[in-house]
């Protein structure tokens, strides 16, 4: 319940940032640099006088849309490959399995650092890196789903009715594997957010002055003793969002396990 309320709040922030702040996240005002939180600037100002609240609020959309698009891409690509691989089996299955092992043998953050570091810090590369990191997980889920579904009576029945392989795969197996993949998306979302923020913090994600949460934290790092509010609030934003997503994801998973 708490998770849903928090998530709803985060979504409102994403949809209507104007409700929460009248300041622009990009307007520089050097006279007002590093001001502590006050009624004029609830979260204080940063090193060039930008309103931290405005940056955090407007950052929500940027940060979360990057995570969401990476997740969707990973689910679609990983899911499709996994379904195919599990259903077809044989050599293709083995080859894809080995490739997935290679990616999985890296700790995700190190793989992310490698890809964004080599390709260069651009938003598109960030999405690409996060997608590649999570494709294997969806691949495995969809693959094992497809393999267990392939042995089910209804697939056999469909086959004996003379339906083609691709038709069985698309019409029947996908429909049964899809809910598992969707729940997994929710469960993985907070992890993607953590890695996205970490890459931003390392300077490998969204580049300033765009207000991405990880990037804001990276700028705040050098002022941690002078202006802790620059770091405290974007971090809290990540914490609250990750908490909301975790709670909702767990709720969904519990509901599905019961079924």
């Amino acid at each position: 319940m708490l998770g849903l309320v928090l998530l709803a709040f985060v979504l409102v922030v994403v949809a209507f940032p104007g409700l929460f702040t009248g300041h622009s996240p990009l307007t520089v005002n050097v006279d007002k640099a590093l001001e502590a939180p006050s009624s004029a600037h609830l979260f204080g100002t940063d090193d060039v006088g930008r309103d931290v609240l405005a940056r955090v609020v407007h950052g929500a959309r940027i940060t979360l849309s990057i995570c969401a698009s990476a997740l969707v891409l990973a689910a679609v690509i990983g899911g499709a490959l996994g379904l195919f691989s599990g259903f077809v089996g044989g050599r293709i299955d083995m080859l894809l399995g080995r490739l997935v092992d290679v990616i999985l043998s890296f700790p995700p953050i190190i793989f992310g650092v490698m890809v964004t570091g080599i390709l260069g810090p651009k938003t598109l590369n960030l999405v690409f890196a996060l997608t590649v990191v999570y494709v294997p997980l969806f691949f495995r889920i969809a693959r094992s789903g497809a393999m267990s579904e392939a042995g089910m009576t209804y697939v056999e029945a469909a086959r004996s009715l003379g339906l083609s392989q691709s038709r069985i795969l698309l019409r029947h197996v996908v429909r049964n594997v899809l809910p598992i993949v969707l729940v997994q998306c929710m469960v993985l979302f907070p992890l993607v957010l953590q890695i996205q923020a970490a890459l931003g913090f390392l300077g490998l994600g969204v580049q300033p002055p765009t207000p991405d949460w990880g990037a804001i934290l990276q700028q705040g790092k050098d002022y941690i003793l002078l202006a802790p509010w620059m770091s405290a609030f974007p971090g809290l934003a990540i914490l609250i969002t990750a908490l909301a997503l975790t709670l909702v994801g767990r709720g969904l998973q519990r509901r599905m396990d019961r079924r």
Binding site: P190, K221, A232, I238, L239, A242
Partner: peptide, 18 residues
């Protein structure tokens, strides 16, 4: 547990430093 898992590790580091 929930808070520990949701907090970014570098943020915890920064807050500890402060």
């Amino acid at each position: 547990n929930l808070l520990g898992l949701a907090a970014p590790v570098f943020w915890i580091g920064l807050m500890l430093l402060f």
